[in-house]
């Protein structure tokens, strides 16, 4: 192989990776029967009953209702942690005095970055929409915590022997039994609506269409990071409610495209080894030529003498 052939090979491999990239980044759809929850933040009153119900259902440490009637927690923005799978945050209402509230929990992505990052498939998207965690598979690497665009998974650092990654379970046991998630069941103002994701999406757009003064024309979670099972509608921009501005592609697509692209049909490894072989061959040949030249030179000198 000469220099020209070598460049050709490298070029072909590059094109191959690019093609693999394009084919792998097709849009991700929610499982057809996925359930979801539509959160109408314009109706939320920040009563924190959803937090209490969540802790009851999931047998989380903080249990008494009185603990959740304390509004002082709204002073700082909170994130879900290993002992609280959902938290309500308070934000200043725009264009009006007063506040708005937004519940935060795992959004159960259609294309979950946490599941993609998980080396042992301890996190998996279920057909019912839930991103389910299996503590028996988990090895505790916490890559999921880094991968999640919403910074949801939390870890039981204080547990020395059997720590788990903890996050909203979407009340998998309850929804499998045909019940509604604990938070949805208790919400006194019914700002949480549980149903088939597709139906919730059309409901969300209907509401936005019917009350354009009340809602912003944006369903958060419809397209964000490839879509999420939990959907939000609001009366003001989502960044003002603590939601990150994210693209339509899941972070999993970027990392997986690179990973899968490199190993697609084994072209890149073969090319790499071929190149290395070429380099070695060229190297050894150079040595051979040099040795022959040296030998000839020696021979000449001998002859000369």
């Amino acid at each position: 192989m000469d220099r020209r052939d070598f460049l050709k090979t490298v070029g072909a491999v590059g094109v191959g990776i690019a093609a693999a990239d394009a084919s792998a980044s097709t849009a991700v759809h929610a499982p057809p029967d996925a359930f979801g929850v539509l959160v109408d933040t314009t109706a939320c009153i920040g009563c924190r009953k959803c937090e209490w119900a969540c802790n009851q259902v999931n047998e989380l440490p903080v249990q008494p209702l009185e603990e959740f009637e304390d509004k002082a927690v709204f002073a700082a923005m909170r994130r879900p942690d290993a002992g609280n799978f959902t938290v309500v945050n308070q934000w200043p209402r725009q264009e009006h005095e007063g506040n708005v509230w937004a519940k935060v929990q795992c959004l159960h992505c259609n294309d979950p970055a946490c599941a993609s990052a998980c080396l042992v498939s301890a996190l998996e998207k279920q057909p019912n929409g839930a991103v389910k965690y299996d503590p028996w598979r988990c090895m505790g690497c916490r890559y999921c915590m880094v991968a999640c665009p919403f910074q949801i998974p939390a870890y039981q650092y204080a547990d020395a022997l059997s720590p788990e990654v903890r996050k909203c379970t979407f009340c998998v046991e309850r929804i499998s039994a045909g019940e509604r998630p604990g938070c949805v069941e208790i919400c006194p103002v019914e700002c949480l609506i549980y149903g088939k994701r597709e139906e919730l999406l059309s409901l969300a757009h209907e509401r936005i269409g019917a009350y354009p003064d009340r809602y912003l024309d944006h369903v958060y979670g419809e397209h964000e990071v490839g879509g999420t099972s939990w959907l939000y509608i609001a009366g003001q921009p989502f960044p003002s409610l603590g939601f990150p501005e994210l693209g339509e592609q899941s972070p999993a697509r970027i990392t997986e495209n690179i990973q899968h692209g490199i190993f697609r049909r084994f072209i890149a490894p073969v090319a790499l080894y071929a190149t290395l072989a070429q380099v070695m061959w060229l190297g050894s040949r150079k040595d051979e030529v040099a040795a022959a030249a040296h030998k000839a030179e020696q021979h000449g000198e001998e002859h000369h003498e």
Binding site: A43, I45, P188, V189, E190, L203
Partner: peptide
């Protein structure tokens, strides 16, 4: 019905819509 807020929600929205604005109290 997904489309219609239930009775519980309707009652609470009516009451708490104002009461919550006033004093932020949401105790049952």
């Amino acid at each position: 019905s997904l489309k219609q807020t239930g009775l519980k929600g309707a009652y609470h929205r009516q009451c708490l819509g104002c009461h919550n604005d006033w004093d932020g109290e949401t105790k049952c």
